[in-house]
Design a protein around this nucleic acid. Structure first.
Lengths: 343, 343
DNA sequence: AGCGCTTACGAAAGCGCTTACGGCGGCCCG
DNA sequence: CGGGCCGCCGTAAGCGCTTTCGTAAGCGCT
């Protein structure tokens, strides 16, 4: 801070109001032990001077740092920005500010973000988005979070199984099952999967649900083509490209999130493949735009904003001895991108 | 911070390494004046203890707080989340963390966010998104920002004319002109406008460009139907609804951003109006999904991520005496949602 | 050996705030 | 009318860090 020595401090307010530092502090943070008259005067002076408390000093001195950290994989992915919006709205009601970090789906980076948040003395850390399967850095991150909790920090995760933290868990497996069930019900058997990288637990969970539902109908998921790609729009476009080229008999594509589904739809359109008459496409999440695509996307709705809000509320509540888990429901949104398999 | 009295402090590291506080501090922040041997030892101890510097204490003590604030209107709007991604990527390279605030397009709220950021001792504040026309609170915000600058803070704005701050300015007016030009070139004369609330400078600027281009062709914008609504997807849907009902002769809709255009397309689809054969639709921004809509959206591309990146870089550079302004170009993306007016 | 110079390091003074702790009136009660 | 209690407020001790300043040691030179 190369601050040029201005910005009113608490002393300035105190002096001007003719009270001590302690009284000014109490008056401004609305603590008791100050007569109404004095409190009002101090507040008036503060307003007049445009005083804002230095949050760092406050936090250092033991006042509660009213800031929480949110770590997302990719802020410009609607899935995460909708979660962020949910977190922010609750934070706002509580007068808390949110510091958003963006890990770019790099576990190493995520670890760094966690460290930064801890260094910023945040009250809580919310980690949104899939965990990483079998990643060593991931466990380093877990250690870091555990240490944070040991020192009184709160942690909540969204869509990630974690040891000791409160968690909001979307029902990825059941959602996958619902989607697979839907397609099978429409007569599809030649189903291709546009998958995100399988080091993501979300991907693994969704696949597990799909596998289960298909097995109920005597279909072995291992017999189905699965293209692994980035968990993004472009990944979906690429996966669809390969599915078209290598598995021309497919009648449906399950994309493991809406971003991939959008990419897949783009590829299909480019190749003149009609959806859903020639190919059904389904996704996961129900991002806002899913309903506005043409054809509108059949997907499984996850209440992202609500998940974000819930996670923060859990983190704000007094810690429970045992981690809370809230399982979110899912809702199959049947729209125009899926239809009966062509005769 | 109800931290339960743990978390290693600098003293702990210093003691353990057998050096003074000062030396430990210097060693860890890589300042000179420490012998390589000692520096290495201190760093080893710090790593061993899992020490992370308390950013608040550092900032208080005069170390630079490596945090910048970003204020956006709506984080779950792709326009803003793409800007945020741009800001974050640059921040990351510089080891800076970004605190994102979301003003929900409420100037009052925005003012509060600015105050919070100032209180958090941020190094810079980036304000993204349109300013508000003739809003008193807006000028309060300006005062606050000016005070922040006076105390050494840096300010950059994106898409907003500001007095003394560096600014990244999308070419809203020319973009509007280009779009209007495009439609007129296709033969459209009965053009309806789905406008965001006209208290937003972005809206005003875009309208000005449209007006100019239309005037060149002898069309008076005031003769055209304009529906004012929220600057969002739902606003666009509503505006299209009214345009359809009240101005059935329209052959084209200019939505003042892509979100509104998406809403408008949804309404048109619901009413069975073919795009572009019965109605052309164009938007502004070129959010990622615009190209993936069906029909793909004709729009004017603004380089959001780049704008965010530029804004942060300007804010990081040493202050110039005069505010810098960087005008971003625009690029007309002609896609499938606009076509010649039907004979 | 003595001089000045550089370099490595330590002591201590805060940064702006919160919060014990203690003092000083006024009130009630006996 | 005095003692105790309570409500209001001031004094001062830090929170964990950076940084100025000072000191001691090491160097090359005369």
């Amino acid at each position: 801070m190369a601050r040029g020595r201005t910005a009113p401090r608490l002393v300035d307010v105190a002096e001007r109001a003719g009270v001590s530092l302690a009284t000014a502090s109490r008056a401004l943070s609305g603590r008791e032990g100050v007569s109404p008259a004095v409190a009002e005067r101090v507040q008036a002076v503060a307003a007049e001077l445009g005083y804002v408390v230095n949050a760092h000093a406050r936090s250092l001195a033991g006042g509660s740092a009213s800031i929480v950290g949110l770590i997302v994989h990719q802020i410009d992915d609607p899935y995460f920005s909708e979660i962020a919006a949910g977190v922010i709205s609750v934070a706002y009601e509580h007068g808390i500010t949110v510091q958003i970090c963006h890990s770019a789906r790099d576990p190493e980076n995520e670890l760094r973000q966690i460290r930064t948040l801890v260094a910023n003395n945040v009250r809580a850390i919310i980690v949104a988005g899939s965990g990483y399967v079998g990643d060593e850095v991931e466990t380093a991150a877990k250690r870091e979070l555990a240490a944070f909790q040991d020192t009184g920090g709160r942690v909540a995760v969204i869509g990630r199984h974690a040891l000791r933290a409160d968690a909001v868990l979307p029902d990825n497996e059941d959602a996958g099952a619902a989607l697979a069930e839907h397609l099978v019900g429409l007569g599809h058997r030649q189903i291709a999967i546009a998958s995100g990288t399988v080091n993501l637990t979300t991907v693994v969970d969704r696949l597990a649900g799909i596998e289960r539902a298909l097995a109920d109908h005597g279909i072995d998921i291992d017999d189905l083509p699965l293209v692994e790609a980035e968990f993004t729009r472009d990944g979906g476009a690429y996966a669809a490209e390969r599915i078209l080229a290598e598995h021309p008999g497919s009648t449906a594509i399950i994309a493991l999130n809406d971003a991939m589904a959008i990419g897949a739809l783009a590829t299909l359109r480019a190749h003149g493949v009609a959806v859903p008459s020639q190919m059904s496409v389904v996704g996961f999440d129900d991002v806002t735009v899913a309903a506005d695509l043409a054809p509108s996307l059949t997907t499984v709705r996850l209440p992202m904003a609500e998940m974000g809000a819930d996670a923060l509320m859990m983190a704000l509540k007094d810690p429970s001895s045992r981690p809370r888990r809230r399982h979110t429901g899912h809702e199959l949104m049947v729209r125009d991108s899926s239809g009966p398999v062509r005769a």
